[in-house]
Write a protein that binds this DNA or RNA. Structure first.
Length: 625
DNA sequence: ACGGATTGCCGTATCGGCCAAATGGCCGA
């Protein structure tokens, strides 16, 4: 059995989790986590690298990890992992995924109350037993119940980023089966929904037996749960459930339409058929009250029977797509190849894994004509966020990378933190000198809505912000969106000339599709960014594009599907409007009041303002690099 | 557990907010 790198990494992640629960050496825990992360980003398969001897040279993989990898490659797992698993109830790992439940708290409730599952945890919280524990209280208990609710909403669902690659691999496997005439994805995964319950696959074939045999024999399949005449349900090794349906070719289009959904869309289409004297089912289009079949081999036939062009699956939510199709104003949805650059990318200057040069080269390899390097700002200490000095240093490196590659423009950017009060993490003067600024929230997620909205608006009103990063802050299955009036933020963004990000990270997909559509309607451009922390993350754009399509976006709605000059001009124009404010804030700062000629922002004398180092004056040098 | 220098040993992300308990552990970024 050949485990994918992802699966090997998952084993190490789990070892780390289990060690933490058992109160293990934190550095040892970290090593396993690091190993997992490194394995995820390996350029080749672990088994291949192990054989070639290149694996041992990878930083983060030492003697111990190497031995375990050997065992995993040979047997599919390693002894430590199996033993740790035996020593801990499986529900503890699940509890760890609840926000606010770290290893210490999971251990506490397990040892003190014997709680081994999320269900038991919830019951205990409801009964008030959690608040009675040491270091816990009413507030913690209430927060816990809320966090369990977020967790529950997501359990059983898989992110598109995890589901889609598996679906495509299965289709490939199916298409290699001789009796398969056609194999397609259906269901919410085909509609590219942000999370998916289970996969629906459809095969056109006259012989369901051999097709199902071939399906059950695919290496991903762990267990056949159900097998009938037309339907076969399996569970994959990854845990994902998959339903395969084998359909006679003459009905394939009707079945594909039916099983793609959404339900509301299907109802609307059938209704429309009814009004035209037609009966539409998963078997085809029929004349009312007869068995006279008018079509159903292709989806086009279904739509044509009710006088419509083919509606892309991503739009099939009964949110106006039928009306739009009827009036010939279906959007020309954006595609991956329409993107001309990525405007949110991290490097090893902060928490990215690739150097500037590697990141820029990877962007060039995608055919981009520009990329913005946007590392974190200083308050994100964990990521070694940039202060002004390092930002300036990095800028030199960007210039060198741009020149040495000579293929694309490298924008000097920053992902600046929006602090609790809405001020930005670096002085406006510094931010004004950059080419591109994304502003994001990474702390104080729990402000009440009025304050949160005011906070974000204040940040956008600074004028130096080009784009609001991951606007809702949600993490799928883990953290709810912040409380914020996104309607109002979008309207203000329109006035200020600020764009909104659609962050392509599979955990985020933020803005979500409905808000993308709203932004489009209000004339606010969306930026489809990857927020890449590794070169391979640039490929996550496919998930951002998926969400953008569900939000009806066309190339003209997406800022980074357009030319760089338009992007830079938006910024220049906004900074021109902002200029007086900047002069004021510089003048107000003690020691930097030296008069200077008002010049256009691009070419201002960089009268470097003395970096204020708090009132304490102690030159406690923050750890260097 | 890793990796690098003290080659048998030592250091290894940070930092602030929250909440429970009255200064500090735990969590998340």
């Amino acid at each position: 059995m050949r485990l994918e790198n992802q699966e090997v990494a998952a084993i190490f992640h789990e070892i780390a989790d289990l060690l933490e629960l058992g109160d293990g050496n934190p550095f040892r825990v970290r090593s396993f986590r690091r190993a997992a992360q490194v394995i995820q980003t390996l350029p080749e398969h672990v088994a291949t690298m192990l054989e070639a001897g290149t694996l041992a040279k990878v930083p983060g993989i030492g003697e111990g990890i190497l031995t375990r990898i050997k065992q995993i490659v040979e047997t599919g797992d390693c002894t430590d992992h199996l033993e740790l698993r035996k020593a801990h109830p499986p529900g503890l790992l699940e509890m760890l995924r609840i926000e606010g439940m770290g290893p210490k708290k999971v251990r506490l409730v397990f040892v003190e109350l014997g709680i081994r599952t999320v269900d038991e945890l919830e019951a205990a919280a409801r009964a008030g037993h959690i608040a009675a524990l040491p270091r816990m209280g009413d507030k913690t208990q209430a927060n816990l119940l809320k966090a369990i609710e977020v967790f529950r909403r997501q359990t059983g669902r898989v992110r598109l980023g995890d589901a889609l690659p598996q679906a495509l691999a299965l289709l490939e496997g199916l298409r290699a089966v001789r009796e398969v005439q056609q194999a397609e994805l259906a269901g919410s995964c085909r509609r590219l929904c942000e999370t998916i319950g289970d996969l629906d696959l459809l095969v056109a074939s006259e012989q369901s037996g051999p097709v199902m045999d071939g399906f059950a024999a695919l290496p991903q399949v762990a267990e056949v749960m159900l097998r009938g005449e037309t339907k076969c349900s399996v569970r994959l090794r990854s845990g994902l459930q998959v339903d395969l349906r084998v359909i006679p070719p003459a009905c394939f289009g009707a079945a594909l339409h039916y099983f793609t959904g959404s339900k509301m869309h299907n109802i609307a289409v059938r209704d429309r058929g009814k009004r035209r004297g037609l009966r539409i089912s998963e078997y085809g289009v029929f004349k009312e009250n007869t068995d006279e079949r008018l079509g159903g081999a292709t989806e086009q036939e279904i739509f044509a029977s009710v006088g419509l062009p083919l509606i892309p699956p991503e739009l099939r939510e009964n949110q106006g797509e039928i009306e739009a199709a009827e009036e010939g104003r279906l959007p020309a949805l954006i595609r991956e190849q329409d993107l001309r650059g990525d405007l949110h990318v991290h490097t090893s200057w902060t928490d990215g894994t690739a150097s500037v040069a590697e990141m820029v080269a990877a962007a060039a390899a995608l055919g981009y004509s520009y990329v913005a390097i946007t590392d974190h700002s200083r308050s994100l200490a964990m990521a070694r966020g940039l202060d002004e000095a390092r930002l300036a240093e990095q800028r030199d490196e960007l210039r060198r990378a741009e020149e040495s590659l000579g293929k694309l423009r490298v924008l000097a950017g920053l992902e600046v933190d929006i602090l609790a009060d809405g001020s930005l993490d670096l002085p406006l003067e510094a931010l004004a000198q950059l080419d591109w600024v994304v502003a994001s929230i990474h702390s104080h997620f729990n402000l009440p809505e009025p304050e949160m909205t005011a906070r974000v608006l204040r940040a956008l009103e600074s004028g130096v912000v080009d784009c609001l990063g991951h606007p809702s802050g949600r993490l799928l299955g883990q953290r709810d969106p912040i409380a914020i009036d996104l309607d109002r933020v979008t309207r203000e963004a329109a006035k200020l000339g600020v764009a909104l990000e659609l962050n392509s990270f599979p955990d985020r997909l933020d803005l979500d599709a409905p808000h993308c559509r709203q932004a489009k309607d209000l004339g606010v451009p969306i930026v489809v960014n990857t927020d890449a922390h590794a070169t391979w993350h640039l490929a996550n754009r496919q998930f951002g594009i998926a969400t953008a399509r569900r939000g009806w976006l066309e190339p003209r709605d997406v800022l980074n599907a357009g030319p760089l000059e338009a992007i830079l001009e938006r910024r220049r124009e906004r900074l021109r409007r902002l200029q007086p404010k900047l002069a004021l804030s510089a003048g107000g700062r003690p020691g930097t009041a030296a008069p200077r000629a008002p010049a256009p922002p691009g070419r201002r004398a960089p009268a470097r303002p003395a970096r204020r180092r708090g009132g304490s004056g102690g030159g406690s040098s923050r750890r260097g690099r």
